[in-house]
Each structure stands twice: as structure tokens, then as C-alpha cells.
């Protein structure tokens, strides 16, 4: 049973109540179509659990398979520095087919972010360390592809269909 080796901290992107008893953590890649499917499911899950659940997202870009995953991750991290991580996260997952640099710059503009700063961040490969730390932390925790979920620190191995995830989280809530 694989466990999360890097605990959730203030360095993480956390959505929902920070003190929520339930934590769903995803290692994801913005260009991965399975993560795109999971994106909508997680939204429903968040609706169901409300304040009882916090959702954490960490980068796991598979850049050899997904040529835009790296720059998409940079874009989300850039938005985070302007307190718009989740807005950008959503835009990226809702536009997975279009993640070329020009698209990313346009998404920045649409969120009122300075696209020239983003362009520079992409050119200079900024946030490389943060993204790499997420990735290697994931590898050391047994992340084996995308998306990989952890429920309260334990790797969740079953299907991420809504019903399965709902059941697993409900069980986890009972055992708290």
C-alpha cells in the first residue's frame, strides 16, 4: 500500500476548507485525457462532500508523452503567484486540446493576468523546481501514472469513476 511521502502543506494548492477531515489529493497532468475525465468527476465529488473535503492538486506532467504538459504546468504555477491557480487549473482542463503557448497566453489574458510575464516564465522555465519536486515526490509516493489519487494519504488504486471515488471517500470518512 503506497503512502504519500510528502504531507500536504501550505506549499500546496488546496481547494476547500483547509481543516477539512477528508483530503483528496491528485497528481495530474493537464494534457492527459484521463485527468480531463477525472476533472469533471472531482468537481461532482467536491459538490457532494462540501466543506468536509479539501482537494489538493500536484503536478505530474508526463512530458515525453504530452509535449504541452510542462508549459501548461508552468502556466498554472504562474497563475498561482497571482492567486489564480484554480481559475487557471479549470481553464486548462476545459481546454485540454489547445495548450500551445499562444493558447496559454490567451488564457492568461482572459483571467486578467499579464501574458508577457507568463511568456517570460515559459521561456525561462520558471517554476521548474516546484514542478520537479511535485513530480519526484509523486514518484517516491508510488504515483504510477496520471491521474493518481491519494485519499487521506493512502494511494487510491481503484477506478476514478464517480461512484467508486464517492464510495472510497465515504468509507474514509467513516474511519476518521
Amino acid at each position: 500500500m503506497s503512502k504519500l511521502t510528502i504531507p500536504v502543506s501550505s506549499a500546496d494548492h488546496i481547494q476547500g476548507d483547509i481543516d477539512a477531515p477528508l483530503t483528496l489529493l491528485e497528481y495530474g497532468d493537464y494534457e492527459c485525457p484521463y485527468c480531463g475525465m477525472a476533472y469533471n468527476i472531482v468537481k461532482h465529488i467536491q459538490k457532494h462532500f462540501g466543506k468536509r473535503l479539501r482537494f489538493v492538486f500536484r503536478n505530474f506532467p508526463l512530458v515525453e508523452s504530452h509535449p504541452h504538459a510542462g508549459i501548461a504546468a508552468i502556466t498554472a504555477e504562474f497563475a498561482a503567484t497571482k492567486n489564480k491557480f484554480w481559475e487557471m487549473h479549470d481553464v486548462l482542463y476545459e481546454n485540454q486540446e489547445n495548450l500551445a503557448i499562444q493558447d496559454l497566453l490567451n488564457y492568461a489574458k482572459s483571467l486578467d493576468l499579464p501574458s508577457d510575464e507568463l511568456q517570460l516564465a515559459i521561456e525561462k522555465d520558471m517554476f521548474n523546481e516546484k514542478i520537479k519536486n511535485d513530480f519526484m515526490g509523486g514518484v517516491r509516493s508510488g504515483v504510477n501514472g496520471t491521474p493518481t489519487f491519494f485519499i487521506n494519504g493512502i494511494r487510491y488504486n481503484a477506478s476514478f469513476e464517480y461512484e467508486n471515488l464517492l464510495e472510497a471517500l465515504t468509507e474514509a470518512e467513516k474511519s476518521i
Binding site: E64, S65, N144
Partner: peptide, 16 residues
Amino acid sequence: PVCGDEMSLFNEILPE
């Protein structure tokens, strides 16, 4: 048929 199947994952981790 999955993203990040075992060989693709190891390929990403090759530098490590």
C-alpha cells in the same frame, strides 16, 4: 492503453 503506462512512466524517470 493508458497514459503513463509503466514503460512511459519509467521513461520519464530515466534521468533519476
